[in-house]
Amino acid sequence: MLSIKNLHATVEGEDILRGINLDIGPGEVHAIMGPNGSGKSTLGHVLTGREGYEVTAGEVTFMGQDLLALAPEERALAGLLLAFQYPVEIPGVSNMEFLKTAVDGMRKYRKLEAMDSVSFMKLAREVCKRVDLDQNFLKRGVNEGFSGGEKKRNELMQMMLLEPHLAILDETDSGLDIDALQVVAAGINSMRDGKRSFVLITHYQRLLNFIEPDHVHVLGGGRIVRSGDKSLALELEDKGYGWLESEAV
């Protein structure tokens, strides 16, 4: 589904990614862990095509397409979704309008029949319930005045409505209390259908108790310094990152 080969990227002239290699197959769940500043979030933004995140070498293929040649909106339509670590507040644009515009675009791209407002409203309300968000959040400005946890649930809601082939969840678990974490995890698990793939960027093993990853990768200094199965996450929880970094050098 996604194949990253020797990916190098700079942000504001600084080398952040220094040769990432990663293959993600259909239906797989990959966890990416690593200390602050190791390039985890940068990887997410490079894949979705954020301006200013410049790829200096390497290639990325997504569902048979050259991902790096596509504009951010084309990447999204192709089925890639990044749940932001810091979702943007957009006052004046209602969440409902935002979601409907996004879903309309996606359905058109997938050659599905357009949804009328009433059916969409119904769907949006159902999804709200699934992520345990009050329906009032649909009427409010996009993320406007949402708490951290509410923003994360709104990201999850977008994922559920847009049904991407690959979802990258950037620290979707950060700042959540245990109840919210379970809601988020259940939401992600409900989206697992054997075909859809996930990349979970996280600091904590905690999330992986609820969502079992197929692979765990540790990012350090812009490279994957260690890959393993879920036991690697437990080992990290136990020992921290220090031992890996010294190994990498």
Binding site: E51, A71, P91, E97
Partner: peptide, 26 residues
């Protein structure tokens, strides 16, 4: 904000319209 909207598959021009109208919709 433009990037955020685009990352949901909304065309850049449309995202610009949404942000401009959003600015006065308040």
């Amino acid at each position: 904000a433009l990037y955020y909207l685009c990352s949901r598959g909304i065309a850049r021009e449309h995202a610009q319209v949404m942000l401009s109208t959003g600015f006065i919709n308040e």
